[in-house]
Amino acid sequence: MDLYIAIFQGIIIASTPLVLASIGELIVEKSGVLNLGVEGMMIIGAVSSFIVTYETGSHLLGLLAAIISSGLIALIFGILTQYLLSNQVATGLALTLFGLGLASLIGQSYSGITIESFPSLEIDILKNIPIIGDLFFAFDYLVYLSVLMVIGTYLFLNKTKRGLILIATGDNHDSAHSLGYSVKKIRLLSIIYGGACAGLGGAYLSLVQTPMWVENMTAGRGWIALAIVVFAVWRPLWIFAGAYIFGGITIIQLHIQATGVNIEAQYMSMLPYVVTILVLVFISMNKNRLAVNAPNCLNKLFTSDI
């Protein structure tokens, strides 16, 4: 039983950065922008939160640093794509390359240091419930925050006026513009928000998952977060399914490796990436479902307003 509880907890911890990054990217894509720089924003979040937490001893300030720094480099992407009308794919790639380079530059003297582990939810009454307590009430605050953010995003997009405006902007920017909404402002704010979320996801890696800074520690999670948005077909609650499946594969393959199955470790490590491809194929086959939920103006140029 303990093993299964450990696996479950491992899956949640492995999935949370993916949940955080992909729920932010979902908002960005819903507004009609494809930001491929998630990997770069995550790594900036990871390094900045680690450094600030190490220097100040405060996890909260670390998280704040991740939100601000990743939001700021997302702003570069926003200005380039929205106001200088650069190609979104190329700019997103630039953001990733720049983020990875900058992160190793500023994190250089911090690699290998460890910090205190992140505080968890300490409500004894809940935590002491047998099994349930271990399964649901034994995590750090960010896990619960990620769950709230997904539900909040669902409510925001479906139940609020601003959410509907955001969806409308992504579906038909010309109509949104002629109704008097500032398409670029909405998109710029979405991009910054998406950056902040990716930053939180990165912070989760360096503060919670492995409380230390390692160069290139995101290891493609930003790209998997992008795939999860497609997997969820741009529906917020499905982000859970996507992220927990990918987190699950990562953890389960580790446990299989630990049992000493006679397969090279590298083949097991390929699994998350191979499954991502298979899932993408499976999701993309159903064109109708994609057409209903995918933002119509995703990655399309909008030139009209200021």
Binding site: I76, L80, L84, L85, S86, N87, A90, T91, L93, A94, L95, L97, F98, G99, L100, G101, L102, S104, L105, Q108
Partner: peptide, 19 residues
């Protein structure tokens, strides 16, 4: 890592200059 930063910045400026 300076190399990586320079390369990333170069691509940013390139995309901006395209405008």
């Amino acid at each position: 890592a300076i190399t990586g930063v320079f390369q990333g910045v170069l691509l940013f400026f390139l995309l901006a200059a395209d405008a």
